[in-house]
Amino acid sequence: MTSALEQLDAIWRTWRLQHDALRVVLRTIQGRSVTTRAPGTLAKTLYEEAVSAQCERDIRACQKTAAEFAVLGMWAVFERLLLQRLGSECHKMLEEPANTFNAAVTAKVAGDVEYWKIDQALDLIKPLFLDARLIGQAKQIKQYRDWVAHRNPRKSTPPQTDPGMAHVLLKELAKALDTPTP
């Protein structure tokens, strides 16, 4: 199974490729392609009969959307890892329960992990990190993720980020979550 760290890297690489691919399209439309615009380059694509200026605006908007969705994807991978790690901590406790009552309570907690608020789940991993800023930054990326997913033009913008910084921060958190505690 692909690890969360590998998935974060894959999203990062995919975004980079998307970004550069859109850059090539922009250059082609503007007639500045390195290889010049060969006949048929844009055939059977959305760009074939598009008005150049409008098409350029659409692609630039698409570049921004691709960056936002990359952060959204990275967050989804991180959130899954976080909940899986909290769930596995509960299952460790279930291996040696103090008594049947304790086992029942722990099993209930393990089952409910999926429904915990993410801010509360992030607070629980504080002992794994000395740097409380990193937990705070993860909460900010979650705010950004919510803003992208449920964009409401009447709401103010939360702290902003980009795929590069989100990748660096979430990967650092994922590394710690991936490391077993003694």
Partner: peptide, 23 residues
Amino acid sequence: PVGASIIAAKGRVDLEGTVDRAI
């Protein structure tokens, strides 16, 4: 200008050109 509220920074401005953007 993007804003003063930026994750892991004190502010951000984007240089948006005809083919790309530099943060």
